[in-house]
Design a protein around this nucleic acid. Sequence first.
DNA 1: CCGGTTGATTACAACGTTGCAGCCGTCTGG
DNA 2: CCAGACGGCTGCAACGTTGTAATCAACCGG
Lengths: 337, 337
Amino acid sequence: MAATLRDVAALAGVSIKTVSNVVHDFQHIRPATRERVRAAIDELGYKPNISARSLRSGRTGVIGLALPELSLSYFAELADAIIQAAERRHLVVLLEQTGGGDRDREIAMLSSPRLQLTDGLIFSPLGLSTEDAALLNVGYPMVLLGERVFGGPVDHVTMHNVEASKAATLHLISRGRRRIAIIGAHEGEVVGSAVLRVQGYREALAEAGIPFDPALICNVGRWHRVDGAEAMRALIDTGVSFDAVFGLNDTLALGAMRVAQVAGLRVPEDVMFIGFDALDETKYSLPTLSTIDPGRDEIADTAVRLLVQRIEEGVTPPLPEVYLADYTVIDRESTAG
Amino acid sequence: MAATLRDVAALAGVSIKTVSNVVHDFQHIRPATRERVRAAIDELGYKPNISARSLRSGRTGVIGLALPELSLSYFAELADAIIQAAERRHLVVLLEQTGGGDRDREIAMLSSPRLQLTDGLIFSPLGLSTEDAALLNVGYPMVLLGERVFGGPVDHVTMHNVEASKAATLHLISRGRRRIAIIGAHEGEVVGSAVLRVQGYREALAEAGIPFDPALICNVGRWHRVDGAEAMRALIDTGVSFDAVFGLNDTLALGAMRVAQVAGLRVPEDVMFIGFDALDETKYSLPTLSTIDPGRDEIADTAVRLLVQRIEEGVTPPLPEVYLADYTVIDRESTAG
DNA sequence: CCGGTTGATTACAACGTTGCAGCCGTCTGG
DNA sequence: CCAGACGGCTGCAACGTTGTAATCAACCGG
């Protein structure tokens, strides 16, 4: 069916190795030969067989990306950015979904034969925790994303969660709010974005001399819109007073904001809202949502860069690198005033 | 590094072919032998080398998915569904983004060597049109999605665009609306979702005896939120009266709805809104957005099923199959009354 | 004019897997 | 008791590529 090196070689009247050399822009080839081979390649529509190349060279040009689920906008936008970053380095991305924080699936994924034809993995777990760090000692290049596991044996790209969260909270405080509810805490957890962001929140309160009120902390199961909505409804039902809401991600904030508005609260007059992630849709909600831009493109680009580095240098990281992306507070209508 | 069949064979004291047979659950193997081989496999942590297998067998277990961009929620949710459908059939998905309707990139993608290690492609173009149908005659299995190309040489999974759009429009009409604006038309285009959906809209108007008013048709460049927002602003600025808006996709409708609300219009009292796609977020906008559910999971599952069928039967489709998914009108607050 | 360098090309052997043909030994039916 | 079938296993060749070593001609300096 498809033309091979052998076919091209026969047509051009050279050896297959010469064709291979032409394909790879090897230096010492006579221009005449090069032209003849090029012509034959075009005529036959030759495309290198990646399986064979990969078998021979051990490289596939494919990197794996494992994340919880694309239907969460944050991960969709992250995947978008990573695919683009990979493309810039001539890599393609094989995408796996591990589901919404299923630890067992995430662990299974790490040794899945489906990753065999991958040169390395960018892994964004949601169910693992720091005690699983040893599991990340897999035999292939890997870059870790997120806030679930720290101190693991692999490069890690993440963000200044505590600082960013503190900045978000201080932003609300600077607008005069003192009863700031948190939507999206995870009860009993000791690791992950939720914990860090709550920590940043508490640091901000402490700095401003505002007492911490546990009644303002709303726990949720997952970080979907529906969870934000339900948490807000529950909060309102408790009758606790609040004048601002910090959604630990944008999706939660948007779900919560909607419920608040349905309940007759005016945003930002009665309640201010701020989210986290800088999703595209926060620019178009009503009102537009203030949020934290965690440097998504920077994270994507760095993750791919580090992975390529590991792939090229060999597997063992002498000292795993930790990269923290810059964040920015984006001030919009939901915190205007 | 990694264990091969040879290593396992040596450890188990059998030939590599026997190991291969065990791996493939070949029938005629003595239980004792099978056990011994299994033990050796476990001990060495053997994983088949997919490159080699693929070189030998011509199959990789990977399918390509080429779509415009994940940052459009519709495509993110579609990709989610397709990855899950593929996983059910033990396939992994290699994801390529072609950008927002760049015809040249889409064409280039079709012959990209990056697809070499793929058994087939699910392709959702946005820049091609029917005259490009011949380009789809590639040498590998392919399933086409979307409304850009009809009558091509490949299986096609799409939806009842005209009927669904007509149903959406009739839904607004049944609520008493007669000045229904369209957000998302593509000026001068003769192919694609926009054209079909406008056609359904016109059929509905005709059926209801409502005159068609070109002033109510708002053209946009792309189908992002910002385009919906800008189109709505432009529409309001023209001073044309309207009492309902049909966003040709949810993202447009949400962008437009926000601008309408900022302009002081009440939804649904002053203006009703309906979208198209049934994105998750339409359940949580304020008000919740009525929309058309185009049967996303059904589309995903069918696309993968057809692709697998083509892969297994060989490339040439005797008669390309066209599958039309069912749609449903979802009635929510934005059209209440 | 010759040894040595360089340029241009090639032969060969892998990479790890699987299809095929074939080899033994045992079992079955006539 | 024997032909043939069949179960259980093995050896070999091939898939298309690339790294290494080798070949051969041309060229250079002394």
